[in-house]
Design a protein around this nucleic acid. Structure first.
Lengths: 333, 333
DNA sequence: ATGAAAGCGCTAACAA
DNA sequence: TTGTTAGCGCTTTCAT
């Protein structure tokens, strides 16, 4: 490229990097040549000396539409930068999650953004010592990486208070289980679950606490709700820790011949698009995923630019009340 | 690494690549050193001389759970290889889609698998001439890349026949619109739509053809169905070209005060997990996404190994009948 | 079987 | 302001 355009490789490099020390004339000449030859710098070669302009995003899976919001926010933020985000699947086991992060490191990404609920904090810090890192959806405080998360305590509180205010007492909860090495209190599902218990007690409903431990997906919510509904004193309201589980819970309630919200109210968390459909009308907690994605991108680039001090960015959720929740025994549906 | 372990860099390289010309003794020594130092080869450096062991997957977005099946299939297939798949979002416009592919090329991925409905065939072939390429979900025949797709004609036929057999005559269809530069007949939504028209005619129902042009997502299906239901002679059955749209259609039907399948039958395409939930019970066409992902991975690796002749892999869909479809005017719901 | 050495396409230090 | 040069960490010849 350089020889073909009668300029030195250094000149080309400088122009591409917007570096200091090129005359306007030279700049024009190089730019013209780049244009003409359709030249594109090889990221791997750049990576050998410095940056690859690649950032890695680890997501456990892509089945939760909430992750799509995060990715969209991140993509939007990176649009005006030289960086490109690539997503790699973290999977369902710790082993796979670790391997995904390693795969990113092996490829010299400039930074890592991850939703990694399974790894230990120690492991995350090892990674963060090597590469600029932003951790999503975990609440622990680290001096090595930035954190972006939803205030899950506030969100869960909104839901339980809403159900109590409607007059419910037998409010049950569906939570998620995994074999994480994180401190339980740092994981969102445990926070939502613990907050549910706390708020129930604060309302004097400690004896009504009923938790089904299952998974944050359709099948998990379905099975969790079935289990709850089969108990001697079934709940009049179910708070599923995630919308995907709430969709399963709705199915279980209907299948049991009960109506929503007439017989059972159902609420979720995440406010996925589906929740807004009139025949689902799921009361849910909205956390701004796109905002989280943007924030993660911004924080990561700051780290890449050299910031070493940790930053924690927290999104405040809000309750979106829809038709799936109402006073117990209301004629509804 | 090499010096530290008293072996030459060449030896290390050979061992890592399983190359010819290392004695068992040397092999052991190197392996021990690799283990001890936790050495991991840099993919970018390897990429400068040969492969990066990275394959790029382009998906338009990650909101369709069907894409998750594809990714899972691909990931599963690559698990026992040295390759890693990274996903990049192709986005909603042709410009973004092209940029995503460029980003992959810039990073010297060893091959590209893409769901790229917007690009022209010519553009795909340009890419395929540079890099081993597998194109998903498009039906055109190219001599430069492999194709993996669902037999959308067969699938659409299954749905329309099913509805006709139930006794429906006023069967409407919801299709998807975009500003693709592909030949329309090569895109799955056009194939489904054209097949719907053809089968309707074959059943002597040419006059009943009613198509709402919208989008393959919840909102699109909702709006499409509303439009269809507001016509002078509303349909008794709606075939949405994708489950996501079908979910929106279900919402519109319910909102109109009509019952499913009593007043209106609804069928979709993709058989996403949600379709199986008892309260949704969506009749849908199952296409094996995981199988498509595995096939794409296999074909791509073959190409990377040197195959130049094009292969087309087609998945045969099957109909999954559930509660959302029944004879017109049946008491159901 | 082994390792020295060239070179992939860049960036950064330095010389001119 | 410019261009020459030395590597970055690998793979691949090619002597030994």
């Amino acid at each position: 490229m350089a020889t073909h355009a009668q300029v030195s490789v250094t000149a080309v490099s400088k122009v591409i990097r917007n570096a200091y020390g090129v005359s306007p004339a030279m700049k024009d000449r190089v730019k013209a040549a780049i244009e003409e030859l359709g030249y594109r710098p090889q990221a791997v070669a750049r990576g050998m000396r410095g940056r690859t302009f690649t950032i890695g995003l680890v997501l456990p899976h892509i089945r939760n539409p909430f992750f799509a919001d995060i990715l969209d926010g991140l993509t939007e933020y990176l649009e005006n930068t030289d960086y490109q985000a690539f997503m790699i699947q973290g999977g369902a086991t710790r082993k796979v999650e670790l391997r995904a992060v390693d795969a990113l490191m092996d490829r010299q990404v400039d930074g890592i953004i991850m939703v990694a609920p399974l790894a230990s904090k120690a492991r995350l810090e090892e990674v963060a010592k090597e590469k600029p890192t932003v951790v999503l959806a975990r609440h622990e405080r680290s001096s090595y990486y930035d954190s972006v998360f939803d205030d899950d305590e506030a969100g869960a509180e909104l839901v339980v208070n809403h159900l109590v205010e409607l007059g419910h007492r037998r409010i049950a909860h569906i939570t998620h289980q995994d074999d994480s090495q994180a401190r339980p209190a740092d994981l969102l599902h445990n926070i939502r679950s613990a907050t549910y218990e706390r708020v129930m007690r604060e309302h004097g409903l400690g004896d009504e606490i009923a938790i089904a431990t299952s998974f944050y997906h359709e099948q998990g919510g379905y099975e969790g709700a079935r289990e709850l509904l089969s108990r001697p004193t079934p709940p009049t309201a179910i708070f599923a820790g995630a919308d995907q589980a709430a969709l399963g819970a709705l199915a279980a309630v209907h299948e049991a011949g009960l109506s929503v919200p007439g017989d059972v109210s159902v609420a979720g968390y995440d406010n996925i698009h589906l929740a807004a459909l009139p025949n689902i009308a799921l009361t849910s907690v909205d956390q701004d995923g796109a905002e989280m994605g943007r924030a993660a991108g911004k924080l990561l680039l700051e780290r890449i630019e050299g910031r070493m001090t940790p930053v924690r960015f927290s999104v405040t959720p809000s309750l979106v009340v829809r038709g799936s929740t109402a006073a117990p025994g209301s004629s509804g549906d």
